[in-house]
Design a protein around this nucleic acid. Structure first.
Length: 735
RNA sequence: GGACGGUUAGCUCAAUGGUUAGAGCAUCGCGUUUACAUCGCGGAGGCUAUAGGUUCGAAUCCUAUACCGUCCACCA
């Protein structure tokens, strides 16, 4: 190894990745026949709407470590990569792009928009795949899946049909979260609470004083609600009618008593707007009250507002108050009313609750088996506290709105009667599923055409235009991506072993995968859930485009090498806690890579004739060093099995640098000069043995440099393989 | 209002009830001995947030308090 004293990652990484890809060992079918026991990780499908960020770097590194370790342990190891169309997320990204280009989205035909986003996604695909390779991910590209592949769409449709047939899906006119900017409904998880200070208005409503922060919704209010036990209002009876003067003239109010009222808030009386408030909606449902829309889906007032019709609500509010003042209906106004408003998690627009016909999944029954599985520890969470968090959420679960009014997604395979709104789920004759991923993703899913007229009323049926919440399809990813129900892969690799993803999306994704997996396959989709935290910048701030502190992982791998980048992500990062990504640390691990390189140069130069398979009788001190190494192997193996990669990596770092390089090599320099053949050969064998073993142990963490040295510079001995499929040293110590 | 975390060296974080609580970065001193200056050797830096308790033994387990953070929740 007559090479430079500096390790040059750029001259190594691409070459080595190609070597691995050509070897075929990413594919479990190409591994040794002795590899029988499967080990499976399904990669969280990458959003196909941009580039990799540091968080992806962490996902790929952690999973690659697990996968490389298990592969070396002799498992039939599958790491299945995937891409997510990421419905709403991608459409938002694309709309922003269109906005910049000055092209309004809502003027575009849905098919056109779909086509453009598909093209955009395909462009990103190559980019993302190459970046994934740069991180060193040893995933099986031959099995790559995309959430819009026709076979995936088919699985998703079948699941939807089964839910519908089992009466677990319904189409209902319920109050939903409506984003006026994006013109779609959102699930409860896609809402961000924001604290805000507004005015609180005390208004005279007949004999009552009511409080509201949203006078613009009050046009249609005709129910006045109070707590049944409120003594202040005991003279008013349920159902009692009261004539009173309101914004646009006289109205008749009806008294309603409901325990949802907080007697301590304001005056203990409120009027309700069931169309635009979830609490009010519930009250109206309980008492079977009329509901009326006041604000349209663009956020403008409807004709019920008379002279305010067509005005945006923010603009209308002060004008309405002016009118109320002129009529003497304003009692007082508080300026510092602090309250929570719901906003769209993507654009921060204030959510306007609306009543709309939407598709919902009943979650209570689906949650029960998941609760049991988690309580019985059939699924283990790392870190443990996520068990409690999941259970708490599952036990308080509410129905899930799975329909979105966006084009970029899997169409909901249903028809709806124009007349009576009866829905038919019609998955029809789908085209045969294709085995080729992504390329065959279809723009529009073929729907069966059997149902033409409504069975109930004979009315015309129209195709549903809504698409699924993207999490509805990714919630089925473990079994869908493996080709449920008939494929050999599904039979071999499901249930999977580990689901590794960001703790942030535990409700969005992980828990829903458990529910849907159990519902469809009757099996837990995975045995372990490993959740990592956020990757923050060096100052501990969340990375965001607006803050301008986004770290591009590729810049770091370029600067310091992928191996150093990976070590920087792993060491000091315990599961579940966020990690401040400090460039200085990565530089430290680049130095470590260099240490490995130079120690290699020394070992190889001084052990030329040594055959590692022929162990000489060791000097006493050397035997002690070997015993110490074996202790390290046992410890590290245990750490790997316990998912404690941060400890394993740190131990290896320390052993290699401060024990092997600093002490053992220095000590053996004398022995290597010795004329006593016994002393010399003992030292040579020991150095080579320790060095080779360290390369094996370090390989999951630092795959490039270790493979490069192991394969290209270490002497050849019988049965030596590519490091990626070399036996994990533990198997040696077992003998 | 509920739930879940966290508090350890200047900074970022480890520590599987058991020697003297460890790393990296930063810092200070010394050192070019042909594997490596992307280096080596050495040092300084801690009442492990606070107060109790359990234990032969606690950073670690329990209780309370304080502060920081995250998530969930329908107060108009």
């Amino acid at each position: 190894m007559n090479l430079s004293t500096i390790y040059e990652p750029k001259q190594v990484e691409d070459k080595i990745y190609q070597l691995w890809e050509r070897s075929g060992f990413f594919n479990p079918d190409k591994l040794s026949k002795t590899a029988k026991k499967p080990f499976t990780i399904i990669m969280p499908p990458t959003n196909a709407n941009g580039s990799l960020h540091a968080g992806h770097g962490l996902v790929l590194t952690i999973e690659d470590i697990m996968v490389r370790y298990k592969r070396m342990r002799g498992f039939k190891t599958l790491w299945l990569p995937g891409l997510d169309h990421a419905g709403f997320e991608t459409q938002v990204v694309y709309e922003k792009k269109m906005e910049k280009e000055g092209r309004p989205r809502f003027k575009m035909a849905p098919e056109e928009l779909y086509k453009e986003i598909l093209e955009f996604t395909l462009e990103n695909k190559k980019n993302i795949e190459n970046q994934t390779r740069k991180i060193g991910a040893s995933c099986d590209w031959s099995r790559e899946k995309f959430t819009l592949d026709s076979d995936i769409v088919k699985t998703v449709h079948n699941t939807f049909k089964k839910l519908f047939d089992d009466n677990l899906v319904y189409r209902g006119k319920k109050i939903i979260n409506w984003c006026p900017k994006h013109q779609t409904s959102l699930s409860d998880l896609e809402i961000t609470d924001k604290e805000q200070i507004d005015k609180l208005y005390y208004l005279k409503y007949g004999p009552f004083i009511i409080t509201t922060a949203r006078p613009e919704t009050k046009f249609g209010d005709k129910y006045v609600v109070m707590h049944p036990k409120d003594k202040r209002y005991k003279e008013y009876k349920e159902g009692q009618k009261i004539k009173l003067e309101w914004i646009n003239g006289q109205v008749t109010a009806t008294v309603i008593k409901d325990t949802a009222i907080d007697m301590a808030f304001g005056t203990g009386v409120m009027t309700i707007t069931p169309w635009h408030d979830a609490v009010d909606f519930d009250i109206a449902e309980r008492h079977n009250l009329e509901k009326e829309q006041i604000i349209d889906f663009q956020g403008r007032l409807l004709p019920i507002a008379k002279e305010f019709t067509g005005i945006k609500i923010a603009e209308a509010r002060p004008k309405i108050i002016e009118k109320l003042k002129s009529k003497g209906l304003v009692e007082k106004i508080e300026d510092d009313y602090k309250h929570i408003v719901k906003t769209c998690y993507k654009c921060a627009t204030v959510i306007e609750p609306q009543i709309k016909n939407q598709w919902f999944v009943k979650m209570k029954l689906l949650a029960e088996p998941a609760i049991k599985a988690i309580e019985k520890d059939e699924i283990l969470f790392i870190p443990k506290h996520y068990k409690k968090i999941s259970l708490h959420w599952l036990k308080n679960i509410i129905d899930w709105n799975i329909s979105r009014q966006i084009v970029w997604g899997i169409p909901i395979p249903a028809k709806i009667c124009e007349k009576c709104q009866e829905a038919v789920v019609d998955i029809g004759d789908e085209a045969e599923a294709s085995s080729s991923p992504f390329a065959n993703a279809r723009v529009i899913v073929d729907m069966g055409n059997e149902a033409k007229k409504c069975k109930k009323c004979g009315g015309e049926l129209r195709k549903e235009t809504d698409t699924f919440d993207t999490w509805f399809s990714s919630g089925q990813w473990p079994f869908a991506s493996l080709g449920y129900p008939n494929s050999q892969d599904y039979k071999t690799f499901y249930p999977t072993d580990v689901m590794e993803t960001a703790g942030e999306i535990i409700f969005f994704w992980v828990v829903r995968m458990i529910m849907l997996g159990l519902y469809i396959t009757k099996k837990n989709p995975f045995k372990n859930v490993y959740l990592h935290g956020l990757v923050l910048d060096a100052q501990g701030n969340k990375m965001s485009k607006s803050r301008g502190n986004v770290i591009n992982p590729l810049e770091l791998t370029d600067k310091y090498g992928t191996d150093a980048f990976r070590m920087g992500l792993i060491i000091g990062n315990t599961p579940g806690t966020s990690l401040a990504l400090d460039e200085n640390r990565i530089r430290g691990y680049r130095n470590f890579a260099n240490k490995i390189w130079n120690a290699g140069r020394f070992v190889i130069a001084n052990t030329g004739g040594c055959n590692i398979r022929k162990k000489p009788s060791l000097q006493k001190r050397d035997a002690k060093h070997l015993a110490e190494l074996n202790k390290l192997v046992a410890d590290v193996t245990q750490n790997m099995d316990d998912f404690k990669f941060y400890i394993a990596a740190e131990k290896l770092y320390h052993y290699f640098w401060h024990t092997f390089a600093d002490k053992i090599i220095e000590e053996k320099k004398e022995s290597l000069k010795s004329n006593d053949r016994k002393i010399k050969s003992s030292a040579e064998w020991l150095l080579l043995e320790i060095y080779a073993t360290c390369l094996q142990l370090l390989h999951p963490f630092m795959p490039f440099i270790t493979e490069e040295i192991y394969t290209n510079f270490l002497p050849n001995w019988p049965e030596k393989k590519l490091l990626i499929v070399e036996n994990w040293p533990y198997t040696k110590t077992l003998k």
